[in-house]
Design a binder for these strands. Structure first.
Lengths: 189, 189
DNA sequence: GTCTATACCGGGATAGAC
DNA sequence: GTCTATCCCGGTATAGAC
């Protein structure tokens, strides 16, 4: 962990803190202290705190995507992979210190501005929607366009809503419930 | 607007800013400037910034509830009042500067602490759930307990999820879609 | 490239006059 | 109760030595 370059340590530390504490609530000073580097070194690699945020979002988005894909890799396309989406997050909620969806949190923290961050947040949900729609078309083909988008929206909102409730209640139960509901919805297809 | 007491002006100004800009991003200085009062006066009425936050949340929760109730008052209990919930927010998203659910935003902004704020957030969703469950029982009675909670969760998550998507996309379309989906779900009962 | 030291600003909160 | 003036702290960012 010590020998992986200053830039990498900064990004890792910042990522952890941004997610756990929030972006605004995390100061540069805390980042450099925990990363064990000097302040000027940080600004050598990242021109500003916002640049660090963008790097965090991009990296997290891609790595979460890979983790998801790896998690559902051995599952059968269609219903099983879709259920795997919920199970992946269920596991995530139990092991890590779950603090809600990283992208939603950032979106709500930065009301005013930052087009870069917003782009990453949108890209995140786009990837989720694509994944869901893709699996739905495996289950039922052809899938009428309108029905498909409706079912996709429903599954996505169910997923995101349950993540929020779980965070507020500090419980994995809402996601458990969402998983069950999603299963019921899929069996009606 | 000028003659309604300092405390009231402070709370109104803070409420607007907390919602539009976020709690952390809003400073005491901006509040007192826009409210047109001195700093010490603020601390005469509210012992700290956090106390101001709690007052904001409590007040908003109650007033939003009343607005909702007033909006659906003339609608028939059951399906119509439930659809009114979505329509209320749709209207809300189009007129005001919609910045997502005020309570969700606060919850995500304050990762670490503040039990008071969390209490208000939970109370908000509790009120929504109660409202939804109540109307569902009008539509179908008796309503099996398990089915009822599932349907309630689904409608709630659909509602909250659509609010989030609408905020991210800066569009009322997700909420429109959610309304249609909810309608379909209700017709299956 | 990495450090120490510092600049500059705005944060929340208080003292004391009126 | 409301004001002005101030305190202290921590924020982001930068200068300059090594």
């Amino acid at each position: 962990m010590k020998e992986q370059g200053a830039k990498e340590r900064i990004l890792q530390t910042a990522s952890e803190l941004f997610y756990q504490q929030g972006y605004l609530a995390t100061g540069i000073n805390q980042i450099i202290e925990e990363a064990g580097i000097a302040k000027a070194s940080l600004y050598q690699h990242f021109p500003s705190k916002e640049a660090l945020l963008t790097a965090y979002l991009l990296r997290t988005r891609l790595s979460r995507h890979e983790e998801r894909m790896a998690f559902v890799q051995h599952l059968a396309p269609g219903k099983e992979k879709l259920m795997g989406l919920y199970e992946y997050r269920l596991q995530h909620m139990q092991t890590n210190n779950f603090k809600g969806c990283a992208f939603t949190r950032i979106a709500y923290e930065l009301p005013g501005l930052n087009e870069d961050a917003l782009t990453q947040v949108r890209a995140h949900t786009d990837m989720l929607k694509s994944f869901i729609a893709e699996q739905l078309q495996v289950i039922k083909n052809p899938f009428p366009a309108e029905e498909l988008t409706e079912m996709t929206d429903m599954l996505l909102n169910l997923y995101e809503g349950a993540g929020l409730q779980g965070y507020i209640r500090k419980s994995a139960q809402p996601m458990e419930d969402a998983r069950k509901i999603a299963l019921k919805l899929l069996t009606t297809l």
